[in-house]
Design a protein around this nucleic acid. Structure first.
Lengths: 300, 300
DNA sequence: TTGAATGTTTTTAATAATAAAATACAATAA
DNA sequence: TTATTGTATTTTATTATTAAAAACATTCAA
């Protein structure tokens, strides 16, 4: 079999659902209507209808399709759920890279990796091609792919780029009018930081999540597809490392919270110079954490 | 045939070249050495050697491979040159999009487009997947790809992003030490601008090239893989449009040259505020030109 | 004996072939 | 006419296949 008949099976079960809303002797909609309803081509609908005729669920004469018996559970076709979304693949793959300390210059075997993540080889190829735009992996001359990141240079360049994007976001943010929702959001964010700071001894683990929220709040101000694409990757990598590097976690997080609060206060006071200064300081701390965690894991 | 035997054919001709450096009765290098020399696997070398035996070019006995006749031109295998590089594909494809005013939301037919650019369908798929990271094209739910850009929003977001990157480059540039080559390069660049300005009536067409040089000179200061990836796309699109939009070209170019000169002078004086101001003004002009040329071509 | 070289087998990736689905076009009946 | 169905064509997703790479085993010469 060349293509899977997943679309057929889904449509088959979909038509059963539609029939279940009817009574025996009711007439079915025309092919094109059914096709639109199930968001597939008429070709598929026609195959499904033929299958229904064979199962004596419907009777076709001319242009009238009559339901002659209610379909039941036994009529349903089984569907193997093994297609994960491209977004999920991205998360899973990056998590795998980071979690298992896959070293740089590892040759990635498309066949094996595609099995591991239960996707078709060509889906993975497509995905790899996308990632290669970020310099994380590269095509090899003799075929296949090679993992380039996370090297020290990758981390440095990623951090630097992050600074560029986030400082830009801050410049935009500070110019927003008084009635923009961002200001109340920042107030709330500040409260959350203070709350965590009060219970830092018990809850210092929660900082990872708060850090992500902090950066998202600031960066979402810039509505730009290019920026957003990068933020996805940046956020994933930094967020993962925060969870990962456990050395001096408590004191590290406490310091970071204070940096956040300073930045938020500067933003609320619309002090651009100070806000940028504070943000840069925090981003630099973050960069050092990322670098040191790479060294701890013998990467880079 | 599943895979092409292009590697075999290239290695075959490669080995002929190697043999031509020998004399009759000379011995050939071991398989593994030949494999390294031609940068292919031993498997290929072995097939080529077998082919050479059949053609009575060499004689193999045990581990000695003796040249028994000089190979000639007739022995060479023909190689069909129709593989273009991935970089070339990128340039060709974007040029096609821009040159033929391919409208947004066009459904791209992988089979047809791959023939048009004479690449394998899966190569194109891979390439499309990469481009989709920039939001230029998208995967369709029912299969295939759809062209999203160049819409007005795409152009606006691209321009805005360009500003972020270039202003960042300027901030870095201005901090460079006196002995850095950039300062003499900027001096030269300024002279080129003045030269063109003196002969603007005759040579205003040459500005397109000068504009590209100007932006490259500034942006190359930032050594960052993410920035560089974007600059490739940005440069292609803006540069193309400059060549394209012929309305008021002379006066438009003259104004742009003056903006360039002002920026360069500010940079040479290390006046950061002024340089950023001038650069922003120029980038905004550039953005407006891009937008108006989109409207002229009924895109967006 | 040892290690470089060759022989053999297994694995992997690129492409052609193929079946499913989408689309386009033609015919028909209400 | 126009909505609907029938038929043909195009296109995509996946499988099967072949070339090439890589791994492993063996042999031979120093």
């Amino acid at each position: 079999m060349a293509r899977t008949d997943a679309v057929f099976r889904n449509s088959f079960n979909g038509l059963i659902k539609i029939c279940n809303k009817l009574k025996v002797n009711d007439k079915l909609d025309p092919e094109s209507t059914l096709a639109t309803k199930l968001d597939v081509s008429r070709t598929v609908i026609r195959s499904v209808l033929q299958a229904f005729v064979k199962l004596n669920i419907i009777k076709i004469s001319g242009r009238t399709k009559t339901l002659i018996r209610m379909p039941n559970k036994n009529d349903l076709l089984t569907i193997q759920e093994r297609t994960i979304s491209l977004g999920q693949l991205e998360t899973d793959f990056l998590n795998w890279l980071l979690h298992f300390d896959v070293p740089p210059n590892t040759i990635l075997n498309v066949t094996k990796v595609s099995k591991q993540f239960s996707v078709a080889p060509h889906t993975l190829q497509e995905f790899f091609s996308g990632l290669s735009r970020f310099g994380l992996i590269e095509r090899r001359a003799k075929g296949g792919w090679i993992l380039r990141g996370f090297t020290k240079n990758f981390a440095i360049e990623l951090s630097d780029f992050r600074v560029v994007l986030e400082i830009n976001a801050i410049r935009h943010l500070i110019k927003l009018p008084e009635n923009h929702p961002i200001w109340s959001q920042l107030g709330e964010l500040k409260n959350k930081h203070n709350d965590l700071l009060r219970n830092i001894d018990q809850n210092f683990h929660d900082f990872s999540q708060l850090d992500e929220l902090y950066h998202i709040t600031i960066n979402k101000i810039v509505k730009n597809r290019f920026v957003e694409e990068f933020q996805k990757i940046i956020s994933l990598i930094f967020h993962y490392h925060y969870q990962w590097d456990k050395t001096e976690e408590r004191s590290r997080n406490e310091a970071a919270i204070k940096e956040h609060i300073k930045t938020i206060e500067a933003l609320l006071n619309k002090d651009e110079i100070l806000a940028i200064d504070c943000a840069k300081k925090h981003l630099n701390t973050s960069k050092q954490t990322l670098l040191s965690s790479l060294i701890t894991h013998n990467l880079g």
